[in-house]
């Protein structure tokens, strides 16, 4: 079976750190940063990028639309 490899880009300045994406991620890719953005929010970032399959669940559920998702298919 072909394996999916994904990556996300979070617009950290617009992220409000609500964690809805973190909960929605099936592979525990996302964590909330210790650092804050200019608005003072602890933003989401991909802590375990190696686990990302590009399912886009995080982006689909993100209320602020700050996540962009990329995906490649790896041949075995």
């Amino acid at each position: 079976m072909a394996k999916m490899k994904g990556a996300i880009v979070v617009d950290i300045e617009k992220c409000k750190g609500c964690e809805v994406c973190r909960v929605a991620c099936p592979n525990d890719v996302i964590a909330i940063a210790q650092e804050v953005n200019h608005k003072g929010y602890h933003y989401a970032y991909q802590e375990h990028q190696e686990n990302c399959v590009g399912c886009a669940n995080c982006a689909v559920v993100c209320p602020d639309g700050v996540i962009t998702v990329y995906k490649v298919k790896l041949s075995d």
């Binding site: 996540i67 962009t68 998702v69 995906k71």
Partner: peptide, 17 residues
């Protein structure tokens, strides 16, 4: 696989409309 090779326009699957 390096993240830079994934984050390319041709691999885009979801972005804000």
């Amino acid at each position: 696989m390096d993240i830079k090779d994934i984050i390319k326009p041709e691999n885009l699957v979801y972005q804000k409309t």
